[in-house]
Nucleic acid binder design. Structure first.
Length: 455
DNA sequence: TTTTGAGTTGTTCGA
DNA sequence: GTCGAACAACTCAAA
């Protein structure tokens, strides 16, 4: 007897319930497989491809070199691997994102036709999406009640790998490892965090030591390294939130409480997306807002040339590192939707392409929150002022100067308003693409108009 | 069943 | 410079 463990968004070995389930079913014999699906791999930006590739290279070491890598459509690949391994069951962590869930349903059917069992154990979340219900039986639409229910529900202790697991090897598709090797070392790929489970756990240990105590105060400061930087690992399941929650358990203070809340947000949005799969691409609450479709303005935003320093610094950080500080994500998102009047989906797509931590649910619903179409009810007047936000969260201007060399001659907070400098302050940096006060008024007027039409 | 009040992350204006 | 109110009136959990 033998079992197959198919890894997708759980690229680790520690705290992996599906591994234990596979070992139990297979009498200890487990064949671990990852499938590179060109349909998903192709459209990703270079940084995202490199991050996945390096994570898989590290994962192979974690599994003592016995990670079977195949490429192609999982619908064909997984049944083939199960047959080669002589496995009676295929084990996975439950996937709840719309695309992955649909894929799993097809693979499950294909396996059933061949008499192979499909076993789901665990998920990428502390509480699997769909499990929590309101008193009236539906899904939560408001964060605070969700987070209360989520904490009350609680989660399991981290899973421990059973003794005596024997990893079975099968030939990998050599072209697949070559594809990943090329992606991992592609020229022009930004500098990325160190990949792999050990690196993730080291980063977590360093954050517990060094960042957690000040997290509540520092997490919004874009000029400080005040965040955990664990999101790229969480995205691929290199570390499970349950592992983090277990380490936070019993720690007093604002830091642990606020950090736990951030994990709750990730789970809230996963739950909302699970219950509203269409909200990945469409307004959760369609207000009938009108949007412009202006490729030039979108391009200026994408390339960090809007003339608003905090926005441009963030967009350049994204292209340079595959990551952007969360506060700047909100500022940049507000600018695209409220100042440039583009549909949130255009920005969400750009983030999905370039963020190495791009989580489908958090990204889509973070954007919807900014656009005013999401779970947070109707604060239509929430339009970020990029200058105020810059002064507030980058008070010395250090973040802006780090990412916009053209503005390094401007001292302190003056970097947030280069147009006020005596010489015009430009030095090759563009002037403001639009006037924020004017566009804010336009955004509010459009909201009013949509409201009027709904009534 | 009906009513009440709270809701991640904001800005501006006027005192 | 700081502070509270207004922005306009929705959704939904909970009492």
């Amino acid at each position: 007897m033998s079992a197959v463990l198919w890894l997708r968004r759980d690229l680790r070995r520690a705290d992996l319930p599906a591994l234990g389930a596979a070992a139990d079913a297979g009498g200890g014999d487990v064949t671990v497989v990852f499938v590179v699906d060109p349909e998903f791999f192709g459209p990703a930006g270079a940084a995202r491809r490199a991050w996945l590739a390096r994570t898989l290279q590290a994962l192979r070491e974690t599994y003592d070199g016995r990670l079977v890598l195949r490429s192609g459509d999982p619908l064909r690949v997984i049944p083939a691997v199960a047959a080669e391994a002589g496995a009676a069951s295929v084990h996975v962590s439950t996937e709840t994102e719309p695309g992955g869930a649909a894929r799993d349903a097809r693979v499950r059917t294909a396996l059933a036709e061949r008499g192979v069992a499909w076993v789901e154990t665990g998920s990428p979340y502390a509480v699997t999406p769909g499990r929590l219900r309101t008193a009236s039986g539906g899904g939560f639409q408001v964060f605070t009640p969700f987070s209360r229910a989520w904490r009350e529900h609680g989660w399991r202790a981290p899973a421990v790998e059973p003794p005596g697991v024997r990893l079975r090897d099968l030939p990998s598709d050599p072209a697949a490892w070559a594809l990943l090797g090329a992606a991992a070392a592609e020229p022009g790929v930004p500098e990325l965090p160190e990949a792999g489970e050990e690196a993730a756990l080291r980063r977590w240990a360093a954050f517990l030591d060094d960042g957690l105590a000040d997290y509540a105060e520092h997490r919004n400061r874009v000029d400080l390294d005040g965040t955990s930087r664990l999101s790229p690992y969480l995205k691929l399941g290199v570390v499970h939130p349950r592992t983090l929650l277990a380490a936070l358990d019993g720690r007093p203070g604002d830091g642990p409480r606020v950090f736990t809340n951030e994990l709750a947000w990730r789970e809230f949005y996963a739950d909302v997306l699970f219950r509203h799969p269409e909200s990945l691409d469409a307004d959760l609450r369609p207000l009938g807002l009108t949007y412009d479709d202006d490729p030039d303005r979108l391009a200026a935003w994408q390339q960090g040339r809007t003339g608003y320093p905090i926005v441009d610094a963030g967009m350049r950080q994204l292209l340079a590192t595959g990551w952007m500080h969360n506060r700047v994500r909100m500022i940049a998102a507000s600018f695209l939707t409220k100042d440039l009047h583009q549909w949130w989906r255009a920005g969400a797509r750009w983030f999905e392409q370039h963020l190495i931590d791009a989580d489908l649910a958090s990204n889509a619903h973070g954007w919807q929150w900014t656009a005013g179409t999401g779970t947070d009810a109707a604060p239509y007047f929430r339009v970020f002022n990029p200058i105020l936000q810059g002064k507030k969260f980058d008070p010395q201007g250090e973040y802006v100067r780090r990412w916009i060399p053209e503005l390094r001659h401007l001292p302190g907070a003056r970097v947030h308003e280069p147009w006020l400098a005596p010489d015009g302050g430009r030095h090759g940096y563009p002037g403001p693409l639009v006037d924020h006060a004017e566009e804010r008024a336009v955004a509010l007027a459009r909201y009013q108009q949509a409201k009027g039409e709904l009534a």
